[in-house]
Each structure stands twice: as C-alpha cells, then as structure tokens.
Amino acid sequence: MMPTRTLPPTPGYLTSAVRVFELSLSEMLWSRRTIFMALIVGAPVVIALILRMAVSLGLPIFENDIRGGGTAVRMTGPAIFGLMIWVFYLRFTVPVLGVFYGTSLMADEVEDKTITYLFARPIPRGAVLLGKYLAYLACTILVVLPSVVLVYLLVVPMRGSLGASFIDLLKDLALLSLGLAVYGAVFAFVGAKFKRPLLVGLVFIFGWEQAALAFPGYMRQFTVAYYLQGLVPHAMPRDGVINLLQGIFRDTPGFGGLFWLALIWAVFLALGVYVVERREYVLEQ
C-alpha cells in the first residue's frame, strides 16, 4: 500500500510575496532594463565627476558671468546639488523608472506568457504583484540612492559644506524613495489594468503631470509630482517656459502632501492587487 503524502500548507500572503520578491529581484536586476537604469542614474554621477575635475583644474565653471565682462553671481556646490536633484532625479529618473519598471511588473509576465506558471502556484495572485513590487522598490532604491550619495560627495564640497547639506541629503533620499514607491504603486496598477501600460504611463508623466502643474487651479492635485515637489528642500529651477509657468503657479502642499502621497500609494497598490486577483489574463497565441 502506497504511503499517503500530505501536501505542505499553502504559504501565507506575506510569505508568498517574499518568495516572489526573492525570485524577481535577481531577474529584475540583471535584465536589459537595468542597463537603461544604470545609464540614467549614472549620467548625474558622470556630470558631477566632470564638474569636480573641471573645478580642480581651475576652470571658472562656477562663476556665472552674467554681464559678459565680469563675474556677477557665484554658483555653489549645494546649489548645483539641489539643481541636479530637481532636474535629473525628481523630474526624470523617479517618474521614468516608476513607469518602466512599474508597468512591466505584470505586463512582462503576460508578454512572455509566463504568468500562467506564476498563477499555477499555490499562492494568492495578489502576492505575485506585491512581491514583484517589493523587488522593484529594492532594485530601484539600491541603484538610485547610491547615485545621489555619490553626487552629494562630489558636488557639495565645492564652495559648500557636507555637514551643512547633510539634512538636505537625508530629505532628498527619503523623498526619492517615497517618489519611487508612489510612482511604482501607480504604475503597477496601470500595468495590471491597461493593455498598453507603458504608453499610458508616459502620457501620464510627460503629458498630464507637466500640463496640470503648469496651470493654476485644482487639477495639479491629481498628480503625484505636485505633492512630491512640495517637499523638496531645494529652490525650484526656472529654466524653460514650462518650468517658469510651474514656478509661477507653484504652491506647496507642505507636509500635508505626505498624507496624500501615502494615500495614493496605498490606494493604487491595493487597486493593483485587486485587479490582479480578479482579472482573467488572456494570453495571445
């Protein structure tokens, strides 16, 4: 008589998510998408390095010669660092990584037709998205934050003080992590719900958010950038017409923004999990 083998108990929601996280992290980190991420977070570091070398060689790049005849305004390392946080990280890297990684969490599995194997496992479907989301967060945070720290170490000491800018660095790191978490949650939902999530995501960050922030009124409250940019400890750059308009109509939600960011994060992550739990994914043959 054959001995009966009892099936192992189904892992809990969190255990399942952690297993998917472990499985997905390496897969996400060593994918082609990481080359793109390395390029966009590596660019500020390279620029900072070039700036540092140029200043070491005595080139007058921090002297902003407005008159054409003499020096009028002196730039400083902390001011340049603040500018780089705005231009490179907050306005570009964070939303773009959110779109590219967030939308692909489920869409890649559908596209590669591997979602069936994941769903065949005895784990809750929602835990798949949650685990992949955690892997996205770990992957992006571990790449973006060291890049910011390197830029800080390279740029701030030029006519500035590492100590005096340290609190701003902590705020920046927390803010960028928060941005990655919130954008990731929004686009994880978009990836789970829509058919062409990347297009929807790009339209959202480069179309909707930019337009809503450039005009007065309440529309800006339906963007993530409004709440995120209100918490930045650096002065907003005013280069270009769009940025000028955004600067003119800028009002800061302050720390109330933290509540709204937390709400957006929770709502969209929950919606994403809900959609994955309910949706019937039909794989194209």
Binding site: L142, P146, V149, L150, Y152, L153, L162, G163, F166
Partner: peptide
C-alpha cells in the same frame, strides 16, 4: 554582491555626511 556594494556606498556616504554634520570634521572640505 550588488546589494552589499550598493548598501556600502550608501552607508559610507551617510556616515561621511553624519560625521561632517556632527563633528564639523573634514577641514579641507568644510
């Protein structure tokens, strides 16, 4: 390895900033 390296860069940067913030150290830099 990647996670350890990334964490090390982050920790080193934060420790440097923290030391400069509290100790007023790094005379050459600040």
């Amino acid at each position: 390895y990647f996670m350890a390296g990334s964490g090390a860069i982050l920790a080193a940067g934060l420790a440097t900033g923290l030391f400069a913030y509290y100790g007023g150290g790094f005379a050459a830099l600040s």
